[in-house]
Computed example of a mutant assay.
Amino acid sequence: MTQALPPAAPQAAPPARQRRRLAPLQPVRAGTRWLLGASFFVLFVAVWAAATLGGFVSPTFLASPMTMLREGWSLFAEFNFAYDVGMTVWRVLGGFVMAAVIAVPLGIAMGAHKGVEAFLEPFVSFCRYLPASAFIPLLILWAGLGELQKLLVIFIGSVFQIILMVAVIVGGARKDLVEAAYTLGATPRGIVRSVLIPGAAPQIAETLRLVLGWAWTYVIVAELIGSSSGIGHMIIDSQALLNTGQIIFGIIIIGLIGLVSDALFKWANQRLFAWSTL
């Protein structure tokens, strides 16, 4: 007669803290987030350095990190690259502000009033799919090669996106709040001013933050053609000289400026609409 084996001991469950750490949507501490983000950049640069310094990639096609830094220093010290950076930032902010000033009120009107939405939405949806770069030949004919042409490229690339996104945000307002405001005697104009706009403001600000990132792609396209200054102009000149170090440095500068502007925008949104994050 065989002897029954004792039941296997149950495996110890992972600690509750570990389970929470691995759970979906579980937030991480600010210090851990910064460490993880910096770790990826370190890993990226290490792979880049190994590929270039190890001879796996020709310097003609990809400069090493050290070469890129030397070329970047040369741009600032010898070629007044700070002026190009300033011009690019000015163009991004100018075109983006022009788009926001026009798009936000139109988007609010479309979201709040279905008649306005029916009138504008087909045209806005049509224009939203038109690439801003396709307008450059016309804009050069209409506005020349000056600053207005570059501002209009950013404006066209941003304005229709903002209009439609703002309209969706405002149109998705809670109906119970609107009905409660009518019950308390609010007028249609008061509904828009006191219910729809305050309720949608945090999301509108977040939409503007996202579209500002898109504006950076449009400004480089605008500076690639018929420009005598700006980061895009420098990249085109460096491409003609096969100077990949300067090209990569210009791309990294765009990313750094965009990262800083995004962080400032996010900080401002948190201060202006702190109640929305509670």
Score class of each variant (00 low, 15 high):
residue 176 D to Y: 07
residue 224 L to A: 12
residue 104 V to E: 00
residue 99 A to S: 05
residue 165 M to Q: 14
residue 202 P to I: 07
residue 35 L to E: 15
residue 148 L to K: 14
residue 267 W to E: 11
residue 72 G to E: 00
residue 28 V to Q: 15
residue 108 I to G: 01
residue 11 Q to E: 13
residue 277 T to C: 11
residue 264 L to K: 01
residue 200 A to F: 03
residue 214 W to Y: 14
residue 173 A to M: 06
residue 148 L to E: 13
residue 272 L to Y: 08
residue 102 I to Q: 02
residue 120 L to I: 12
residue 182 Y to K: 14
residue 142 W to I: 05
residue 18 Q to K: 13
residue 102 I to G: 00
residue 192 V to S: 05
residue 245 G to S: 06
residue 234 M to I: 11
residue 55 G to P: 01
residue 135 F to D: 00
residue 251 I to W: 08
residue 117 E to R: 11
residue 33 R to D: 15
residue 71 E to K: 09
residue 197 I to E: 01
residue 169 I to H: 02
residue 185 G to M: 10
residue 74 S to L: 12
residue 158 S to D: 07
residue 253 I to E: 06
residue 39 S to I: 12
residue 29 R to K: 15
residue 126 F to S: 09
residue 90 W to H: 11
residue 160 F to R: 03
residue 62 L to R: 03
residue 5 L to W: 11
residue 135 F to C: 05
residue 69 L to R: 04
residue 169 I to R: 02
residue 234 M to A: 13
residue 242 L to R: 10
residue 139 L to Q: 01
residue 96 F to Y: 11
residue 48 W to L: 01
residue 196 L to H: 02
residue 221 V to Q: 06
residue 216 W to F: 06
residue 43 L to P: 07
residue 59 P to L: 04
residue 67 T to G: 07
residue 69 L to Q: 05
residue 120 L to R: 04
residue 259 L to I: 15
residue 23 A to V: 05
residue 63 A to H: 07
residue 144 G to K: 08
residue 101 V to H: 03
residue 250 G to W: 02
residue 248 I to K: 03
residue 129 Y to M: 14
residue 160 F to N: 00
residue 158 S to Q: 09
residue 32 T to S: 15
residue 241 L to P: 07
residue 122 P to E: 01
residue 68 M to P: 01
residue 1 M to Q: 13
residue 89 V to T: 06
residue 143 A to E: 14
residue 166 V to S: 04
residue 186 A to R: 00
